[in-house]
Design a protein around this nucleic acid. Structure first.
Length: 265
DNA sequence: CCGGATGTTCACCT
DNA sequence: GAGGTGAACATCCG
C-alpha cells in the first residue's frame, strides 16, 4: 500500500501520537527486517530516550531521536514495502483503507518500540518487504512528490530515454510515487507510460505537473493511493472511464501498467 | 493451484 | 553508463 499518501498519514500519526514518550524497550524480533547491518542490540541505545520529530522523504519515514542523556540520537528510517503499516497504540495510520484486517495480526509485527507509559509504536508488515535502518541516506532521495515544483519535475525527467512511468517511479528522481499513483497521474495527464521521459514538451511537462498535484490532493482527501479514478478499471476487460475505450495492460518499469491508448499519447 | 499484488535491492544481461 | 529482466522477500486474495 504505502506510497507518499500513506506514508504521510503514518508520519502524521507518529507526530501526533509518538513524540516525547519515553522509550522503555525496542523490540526487533526479526533481524532480517533490520537493514544495512543494523542489529537489535544497537537499537538499545534508544531506551530511555524519545522520538523528537517525525519527518518524511518520499516513502521513507524518518524519526529523529533524543537519547536519555539529552544528546541527539540516531535518525530511525522506516520503510513499509508493499504491505507495511505504522501502528501506534493499536491505531493504524491510514484508518479504513487497508483491505485486509488480518494485516495487523501480532505475528506480522516486525519492529516496535514500547513506551514507558505502556503504549507502543510499531510496523506491522505481513509480506516483510519493509525494513528499519539507522541514519538512512537522505541525500539519495529525489524531489518529494508532495512538494514537487515544475522545475524539479523537468529536471527529474530531462534527457532520459527511460519510459516516463519508470522515471516517475524512480525514487532517486521523484520520491513517493508508486505504481498506482503513476498510472493514475499519467492517465489524467493523457501521457503514455512508455513515452521517453525526456521527450515531453514544455506544455506536456506543465500538464503532468498540474495533474500530479491535483491527483495527490484529491486522492489524499479520499483516503489514499487506491482511490484514483482509474483504480476500479485496472482489471481484465476494464475500460477507460473517460472515453470508454478498452484499457491496455502492459509492463513498464517492471510493473503492471494499465493505460488508455486512445487518449494517452 | 496459479498468478498477481500500493516496493526495493541486487546480480546479470544488452 | 543507461536500462531492462528476473529473483528474492511472505502472505493474501480471486
Amino acid at each position: 500500500m504505502p506510497e507518499v499518501l500513506e506514508v504521510e498519514a503514518y508520519r502524521a500519526l507518529a507526530e501526533q501520537a509518538g513524540l516525547g514518550r519515553t522509550i522503555a524497550s525496542v523490540e526487533a524480533p526479526d533481524s532480517w527486517y533490520l537493514k544495512r547491518g543494523l542489529t537489535a542490540s544497537q537499537l538499545q541505545v534508544l531506551v530511555g530516550g524519545h522520538f523528537e520529530a517525525a519527518r518524511r522523504l518520499g516513502k521513507l519515514l524518518l524519526l529523529d531521536t533524543r537519547l536519555a542523556s539529552g544528546a541527539e540520537g540516531p535518525v530511525l528510517g522506516l520503510r513499509f514495502g508493499m504491505s507495511g503499516r505504522l501502528v501506534v497504540d493499536g491505531r493504524v495510520g491510514t484508518g479504513p483503507l487497508w483491505h485486509s484486517p488480518r494485516g495487523c495480526l501480532p505475528r506480522y509485527e516486525r519492529f516496535a518500540v514500547v513506551f514507558a507509559d505502556g503504549g507502543h509504536l510499531g510496523i506491522s508488515d505481513p509480506r516483510r518487504l519493509g525494513g528499519v535502518e539507522v541514519e538512512p541516506s537522505e541525500a539519495r532521495v529525489g524531489f518529494d512528490a508532495a512538494t514537487l515544483t515544475p522545475g524539479q519535475l523537468a529536471r527529474a525527467l530531462s534527457t532520459s530515454r527511460a519510459p516516463l512511468k519508470a522515471r516517475l517511479m524512480d525514487q532517486a528522481r521523484v520520491a513517493g510515487i508508486g505504481n498506482l499513483i503513476a498510472d493514475e497521474v499519467l492517465w489524467r495527464a493523457g501521457l503514455a507510460p512508455s513515452r521517453p521521459a525526456g521527450s515531453l514538451s514544455p506544455a506536456e511537462l506543465r500538464r503532468l505537473h498540474r495533474h500530479l498535484r491535483a491527483a495527490l490532493a484529491q486522492m489524499g482527501a479520499r483516503g489514499g493511493s487506491h482511490t484514483g479514478d482509474l483504480m476500479a478499471h485496472r482489471t481484465p476487460g476494464g475500460r477507460c472511464p473517460r472515453d470508454g475505450q478498452p484499457l491496455q495492460r502492459d509492463r513498464v518499469g517492471g510493473r503492471t501498467t494499465w493505460w488508455c491508448p486512445a487518449h494517452q499519447r
